[in-house]
């Protein structure tokens, strides 16, 4: 097994089910990725397609592991990099007191894509955390 290349751990004040929903729903991934959405039925062996705003598939992968609401893993491959081994992303969700600990592990990355990916995930996950926590805050007010 390769050493993971990029690891990101964040604690989000939400529930396991909501976070799972966020990581997998089309509506949410659209908001979360900004320029597209993820489509998959999230069954092991199914494909994961990233659909850009023009309706084209930018990159695709395959679901490796799917154990709602705790564990999700899929591969990640750009169309122009099919000769390379696909990189792999794994999400682990754990209850931690009143928050959920989200661990993202991305491996099999070359250095340049690691730089791009780390920046992208860091921004996206921080955004995801804010969305989930703000949504909760709004529900609280309402």
């Amino acid at each position: 097994m390769d050493k993971p290349t990029f690891v990101y751990v964040t604690y989000i004040a939400t529930t396991l089910d909501k976070l799972w929903e966020a990581l997998t729903s089309e509506a949410f991934t659209q908001q979360y990725w900004g320029d597209g959405q993820l489509q998959s039925d999230w069954e092991v062996g199914s494909s994961v397609q990233h659909i850009n705003p023009d309706g084209e598939s930018d990159w695709q992968g395959e679901v490796l592991q799917s154990e709602p609401p705790q564990r999700l893993a899929y591969t990640f491959q750009l169309p122009n990099e099919t000769e390379l081994q696909p990189s792999r992303v794994r999400f682990e969700l754990e209850q931690s007191g009143t928050t959920v600990k989200l661990t993202l592990i991305h491996d099999r990355l070359d250095t340049q894509s690691c730089l791009n990916v780390s920046r992208r995930w860091t921004v996206s996950l921080s955004y995801l955390k804010r969305l989930l926590e703000i949504e909760d805050g709004l529900a609280w007010v309402a």
Partner: peptide
């Protein structure tokens, strides 16, 4: 962040708090 790989305890820089 700590990631266990077999019996190896690997240390990773977690960018979340800095973000």
């Amino acid at each position: 962040a700590i990631i266990w790989q077999g019996r190896e305890k690997l240390h990773y820089l977690n960018p979340a708090p800095i973000q």
